[in-house]
Amino acid sequence: MVNMTSETLRHYDRIDLVKPSKYDEQTKYRYYTQQDIIRLNAVRALQMMDLPLQKIKTVLEYNDLEKIIKFLTEAEKNADEKIETLQYSKSKIQLAKADYERKLKGRQNIQNNFVYNFPERVIMLSDTMETPTLDNLWNYLSHFYDKFEPSLKEQFAFEDLAGIYTENGISRLFAVCIRHADIEGLKILPGGKYLCSYCTEENRKIILDKLIQTANEKYNIKPKFTIQQIVVSGILQWNYQAQIYLG
């Protein structure tokens, strides 16, 4: 009748929250009246407000209307806060879902090389991070914002996009600037055609070497730098899109 297990009823009995109106010593059966059932349903309703059992026990003993109104006002406030938190969580879920849908829609065949036109990009290189890890990629943008004095932070914004920039054998993790001030440490990736190929963590060196060889043999290009843009493939997983500038 109240959708509670027998163990729950026994526990309520032990803590004097809801005691049966009758207890048979021989059969060990507990007997509940209609009034007991009303109390049990009240307990369930109060539990939906995330109240601990000891608090519920206190509330059920209220016989002062002012106390009840004060309690319900506080419960309403708590419910509003939870709704606000859930709405915020939902908005973050929707943004993440849209981002993954965009990545899925824009994903190329990972087996083939292809040429893609990129606009000019301004990137900021990390001073310390060379490759992505679970630790640094999860919140990598804070690493770049922390490089600025407080007065400069408002002048910078970054895409939710990271990658590895390699030049002269030195690799650094980078972030792509949406908005930036004119300071040292920024690097401009020229706009134009890039020879690209998808790769995994395991085969990215092999794929990148082959891409460099193709750029040399097919396009007569000896790249001065290479890009390995991180492509999220799961919640805690990623692959790469290797990019070589063709001009």
Rank of each mutant, 00 (worst) to 15 (best):
E76N: 08
T131V: 14
F174D: 04
P150A: 06
L51H: 01
F156K: 01
A215H: 11
I69E: 11
I123E: 07
M129A: 13
S21V: 14
E217L: 15
C199N: 12
Q94E: 15
Y194A: 02
I123R: 11
I206Y: 10
Q47C: 14
I15L: 06
A79N: 03
A75M: 01
D182V: 12
L211K: 09
H180Y: 15
T200S: 14
F156C: 00
D209C: 10
D127S: 15
L17E: 07
E217K: 15
D50T: 01
I230R: 04
I164Y: 03
K92Q: 15
K22S: 12
N136P: 06
E101G: 01
A162G: 14
I56P: 08
I212K: 13
I221W: 11
V18K: 03
G163H: 00
D99A: 14
K224Q: 12
K222V: 10
G247V: 07
V43R: 06
W138P: 01
E149V: 13
G106P: 00
L46H: 05
Y88A: 11
F71M: 08
E74K: 05
A215Q: 07
D135P: 02
L211V: 08
E76M: 06
N139D: 11
L125A: 07
M49P: 00
N239W: 04
L211S: 11
K218G: 02
Q47N: 12
N113R: 01
T33I: 08
I188R: 14
K193I: 02
V43S: 03
T166D: 00
E76A: 06
A96I: 00
H11I: 06
K67C: 06
F225W: 05
H11R: 10
Q228N: 14
F114P: 01
T33S: 15
T214W: 00
Y116Q: 10
F71Y: 10
K22L: 13
E61Q: 12
